[in-house]
Nucleic acid binder design. Sequence first.
RNA 1: CCCCCCAUAGCCCAAUUGGCAGAGGCAGCCGACUUAAAAUCGGUAGAGUCUGGGUUCGAGUCCCAGUGGGGGGACCA
Length: 854
Amino acid sequence: MPPSGERRNENGVCVTEQQGRDAEGYDFRAIQERWLPVWDELKPFEVEGLGTGRPRKYVLDMFPYPSGDLHMGHAEAFCFGDVLARYWRGRGYDVLHPIGWDSFGLPAENAAIKRGVDPREWTYANIAQQKASFRLYAPSFDWSRVLHTSDPEYYRWNQWLFLKMYEKGLAYRKASWVNWDPVDQTVLANEQVLADGTSERSGALVVKKKLTQWYFRITDYADRLLDDLDRLEGAWPAKVLNMQRNWIGRSRGAEVEFEIEGREEKVPVFTTRPDTLFGATFMVVAPDSDLAAELASGASPEVRMQFQDYLAQTQKQTEIERQSTEREKTGMFLDHFAVNPVNGERIPVWASDYVLADYGHGAIMAVPAHDQRDLDFALKFELPVRVVVDVRDEDGAALPDPAESGVATSGDGALVNSGELDGLPKAEAIAKAIELLETRGTGRATTTYRLRDWLISRQRYWGTPIPILHGEDGEMKPVDPASLPVELPASEGLDLKPKGSSPLGAATEWATVEDPETGRTWTRDPDTMDTFVDSSWYYLRFLSANDDTQAFDPELVNAWGPIDQYAGGVEHAILHLLYSRFITKVLHDLGYLDFDEPFTALLNQGMVLQDGAKMSKSKGNLVEFASELSAHGADALRVTLAFAGPPEDDIDWADVSVQGSAKFLARAWRIADDIEHGGAPVGVSFDGGDTALRRATHHLLADAPGLVEAYKFNVVVARLMEQVNVTRKAIDSGAGIADPAVRESAEAISMILSLFAPYAAEDMWAKLGHEPTVALAEWPAAIPELLVQDEVTMVVQVDGKVRDKITVPASITAEEAEALARASRGMQRAVRDRQIVNVIVRAPKIVSIATKPA
RNA sequence: CCCCCCAUAGCCCAAUUGGCAGAGGCAGCCGACUUAAAAUCGGUAGAGUCUGGGUUCGAGUCCCAGUGGGGGGACCA
């Protein structure tokens, strides 16, 4: 007898009666209200110390910045991170999945200034709101170890880190040309300036200023930061690895010292092609370099004037103009000559803006025959071009003379016109040239990097104060670590408006420190740290979030770290990820960490778009997280995001259907609801259950882990939909509701669905007679016997076309398969009287036959 | 200019890693329910894989050359 509340329609198909026994049907609001208090009580995701002894996984999402409520981007990122955290729990791991807030920084400060309130007020109100939204969205966070970087208990350790860096000589102050954001009125690190010369935060065009600032010596780690990327191959997105490699920009070559007539000191230049030294026919220096100014000042009045004009012209250009590759070369002769150290040749020295002052030494040796830029310049100003590498094309023919063709030859070939280097191929010539330079003391092998040291001081209020004291005589001393934190002064009475110098400097009482022993007066460093310092090590603090004796417990950190799975946006491909890698290596070298890479695996989610464009209030295409959440519920939202496509791809909200997800959840839920009213009892043996359904269930159990681990969440959801479909069919027109296989399938659905839809899955789990929570239920293993097919379909191909399909035992031998294929009607019809020339057998999948005309 | 990624049904996307192009969803169409519609439920049709070569018995998958799109770097010596 069918369970009450169901009846058959005209086609004999059993349909569920909506108005029947469960008047509510699937009601996401009721389900959310039912389970939230239970989870609050159970705290199922809290872990303590080293865990329970099961294997450990540390799964982390990049922590949010508290500007307003959560948005759709957060919804997506935290959905994916949570899928992975819940997955590893289901696989029997202790999972650490914490959450915190990156709560220092300019947006809070700017918003607070605009509203005339304390940044603390604005920041912590937003955090409270995001926490409430998270609770409803239900990522499986351990709420017992929350941190906020703006808490003194956190930034105290940020200062501790700074002092460690200072102690090791990795934090230093220097005067240099820096990036200045005229809107936010603070300096920026190179990483915070976009390719078009604008600030990644304010969007303002960044200008250069000469200032004394604090730096972290990240360039000391350039080689390791680059080389260790190889270990992340396959575990990090190729795109991020590529971006970091480009950013570090290692370039191997040689430093060559050129004598300049009338100048004491030699001038070093960097080249990647020391083999072409004999082809250097002139030298070029950057017009904005000290050397150019010096050489011009020693020249005739005409040259001096010409130089002033040229320099002014260079400095007037915007970054965009300067970078235009198609630009015609400009420059001027500086009325000086240099001497080529390998052959004593006298070559003219020019100034041109195609040479950059801040790369290498701001001067180059120009080899026009083998460098396009030098050739363009040489042709424009009629400078000599000398071929020193005999480059050939594929057929061994000599390439045309660059002076004639206008095309520099940069390939490999035998050296010519190059003294001792003659006849050598490029690689050997490079080695020999370096050897020559070294023995003569006029050069050496060297490496340059695009990466610059990390500028970490900021002239703003809402950040970690730099724990350094300045004496009147310019002496510096670190704050005593025992007296940390150096707390921010109250904002009351301070003018926080950006004005080019730190507001902290104006807090006279705070800034002035008297040494009780010596009576000497010191002034606190007025700057605060770049907030990327805060986030460079926060993942370690989660292990000891409530520990007021140390930044982190090395034992806990080494047990749980490094992060097994990190998830976040690709906008941090360089910034946060590079800084974190650097600080991790430093802490490793200081003996605190066993590991020297922080993030073993990285998942970058795409963006959530609307109608093909980034969502924004001004465009009027904003999809509000809060309204989606209240309209459709957390589950439907999460399923929609997971199902939309591969997680790395952008999601266009116009392409997806939250209603479709809700429909699927209702279908899944109804299966458990049906079982509750007439299904096999909880604990029943599944052995006698319907074999076809059991096969489907166990294929799902077998495939799901690989799919989740490959981030194919969309496929897992599709497989769940499929499983719901076959289970529905089994209930309505197959094995029937009471079959144990139906319960087995529903339990598997509930467990796997819990990664995406924790509420619906929990409700299903309860309806199936289990205690909460499904989040801690371990997935059953797939039974191998249910995975192997006794019979499979074998395809018979003739000349690449499918001509027949035969059902064969899965264990068929190659001989049997070939015999069956040859005997098949489809094959005989296709072959007729043609001659068989080749037979390939891949039992039991396929037999492929190649023929030719008889 | 250099490097990386992508291109499958009207749309979003699968395809056991070289073996029958289709798992799932959206939109569509048909049917059930309804006085009717929406919602819901059931059922269906629909591409030969961006283009051109190549390797192979066999290519969406591998190789080469393009086209289109996305991203990064860039007068970096």
